[in-house]
């Protein structure tokens, strides 16, 4: 074998490894879900009086399993999760958004959580039903989602008061250039209507591990995924009562200027 052949084979091995590990990880989503979690979801559906709570805990456990697998299979990626996140309770959590991994990372960190999901996902058979049973909110109240939105918003003060966290990506979509985009007002309005604290998180490098528009995980490049608490704005903080645009700008500025200690 010539040096050129060896070099070509070596350069092929990396992408093949990416695809192989990606297939393993995604098979957890299908076969793993059916074999390990579906029976518990069915039991929760039949037996649990508080299905929303049970489904949220199961979702959390399922994604903890997912990230356990990711950590084991991709040792080049290190994880730095701010320990303060484990203590966040009863808060509206806002975070920047760079990868599909971000929402499931947050689900894996909060046993009691709600989040906002695109309306079209609620229309997917079984999966959409699971989202609804998990207490998640539709992104808009158009058409048949009006009733669901009304019910979710009405029950939100109690959910937050009992220690649940509502996490929202106020940019609405993933940033493709790592810049923090324009914020939607929803998260901030809900927080103020419920008089709940706002916890601001900053996620970094999930997009290097799983880039938008790519099929495979990047399993070879050394990387450190970080998730930090940037700020917490309690209802008695003077900023909490700023005009909504000013409050959002304050949060956005803190995210833009955040430097990891």
């Amino acid at each position: 074998m010539t040096g050129t052949d060896r070099s070509r084979r070596h350069s092929m091995a990396g992408p093949v490894r990416d695809v192989w590990i990606t297939l393993l990880v995604w098979s957890y989503f299908t076969a793993g879900f059916v074999a390990l979690f579906l029976p518990f979801y069915l039991l929760a559906l039949i037996l649990e009086s508080n299905r929303e709570k049970a489904f949220q805990r199961l979702n959390c456990s399922f994604y903890q399993g997912f990230f356990y697998l990711v950590r084991r299979l991709i040792p080049t990626c290190r994880w730095r999760i701010d320990p303060a996140i484990a203590r966040v309770r009863g808060s509206v959590v806002v975070c920047n958004h760079v990868s599909y991994l971000d929402p499931i990372l947050l689900i894996s960190l909060f046993a009691r959580h709600r989040t906002v999901v695109k309306n079209r996902l609620f229309a997917i058979p079984l999966f959409g039903r699971m989202l609804a049973l998990s207490g998640y909110l539709p992104a808009t109240a158009d058409g048949r989602f009006g009733g669901l939105m009304i019910e979710r918003i009405a029950s939100m003060p109690g959910f937050l008061k009992n220690g649940g966290n509502l996490f929202i990506f106020p940019e609405g979509t993933r940033s493709r250039n790592r810049r923090i985009g324009r914020f939607s007002t929803g998260a901030f309005k809900i927080a103020r209507n419920c008089k709940a604290p706002i916890t601001v998180l900053y996620v970094q490098n999930t997009d290097r591990l799983f880039a938008p528009g790519k099929f495979s995980f990047n399993t070879r490049e050394p990387n450190t995924v970080c998730l930090d608490v940037v700020d917490r704005i309690a209802p008695d903080d003077p900023r909490y009562d700023l005009p909504l645009d000013d409050l959002m700008e304050d949060v956005r500025t803190r995210l833009v200027s955040f430097k990891r200690p």
Binding site: A141, G147, I153, T185, I190, N193
Partner: peptide, 27 residues
């Protein structure tokens, strides 16, 4: 003015009218 505001407005309308709205009325 989004659906969250609309739901908040419904609460204010309930206060104005002094009565609770039904689910269908809210929808």
């Amino acid at each position: 003015f989004d659906s969250i505001d609309a739901i908040e407005l419904l609460r204010e309308i309930e206060l104005l009218l002094g009565s609770e709205l039904s689910r269908d009325e809210k929808k």
